[in-house]
Design a protein around this nucleic acid. Structure first.
Lengths: 133, 133
DNA sequence: ATTGACCTTAAAGCTGACTTTAAGGTTATA
DNA sequence: TATAACCTTAAAGTCAGCTTTAAGGTCAAT
């Protein structure tokens, strides 16, 4: 498989695939003309990268392709997943608070601000005080 | 008030205040020596910027200091807040799915992977398939 | 008079995950 | 044989929201 085909199959741009390789996350064989050659393992590896990203891992947090070949350490992996679970829970709370602030602000504006009127900046900063931020 | 004092009162670095001014979000008077002079309105304005950020608005989405002086348009503000509410709801779902993926992956690993063992890469990509990603 | 803590500007640097550009080599098709 | 559609590299550009740097001016206290 050439890089364009791998791009098609994985849904990831060729430039991105080269970028992952430059970060050490992916290895590639070369054919005689210098083109990169891939197989189904390469596709798996890309899927693993995207999956890990979807869990909140940055590219730098991922083990290099060389390291990954030796298999993964049980305790280390579970520890990191647990860490990400906690991060996700914290993020969830944070976004929830944001949504709450938006909801109360919308309610507040609908109650205190007649349609067609123009809200003076002062009133808005008062609302800001009420929103308790 | 000089910029350092405003920084103290607002909890925002002087460089950030200058940055906000360069983006047109903040205006400043100057004293005879060229130093920026602020008042309590400046503090309000900064609080409004941080509050708007906390609702998910980018700096570019915020009206410039000049525009804001004329007051705000009811329909426009409510429309944008509603937009952000929907964005926040979508984000909330997305993070929730991430947390779910993390939870099922942790469960899956605990069930299928004895402590002290080393997980072969192949097994991990199988789990990836099971995680249905 | 000098030190140190402030202030000024424009411009460059930082983060992460890429994309784009420039300059060129390869291959299949018309 | 020429043209298009691929591929290669290294290096620079993108985004947002800042921070840092460099080179200097101001001011209060010693």
């Amino acid at each position: 498989m050439k890089i364009g085909e791998l791009a098609q199959h994985s849904g990831v741009a060729p430039s991105t695939i080269r970028f992952y390789e430059s970060k050490g996350l992916l290895k590639s064989a070369r054919s005689s003309n210098g083109y990169r050659q891939y197989n189904s393992d390469s596709l798996r590896q890309i899927q693993l990268i995207r999956f890990s990203q979807s869990l909140g891992f940055s590219l730098d947090e991922m083990p290099s392709a060389a390291t990954a070949e030796d298999g993964f350490d049980h305790d280390l992996i579970l520890e990191r997943l647990e860490g990400k679970r906690q991060e996700a829970a914290a993020l969830l709370e944070q976004i929830q608070r944001k949504a709450d602030r938006l909801n109360s602000l919308i309610t507040l504006l609908n109650e205190n601000w007649a349609e067609g009127q123009c809200l003076p900046a002062q009133t808005l900063t008062n609302l800001l005080d009420e929103a308790n931020y």
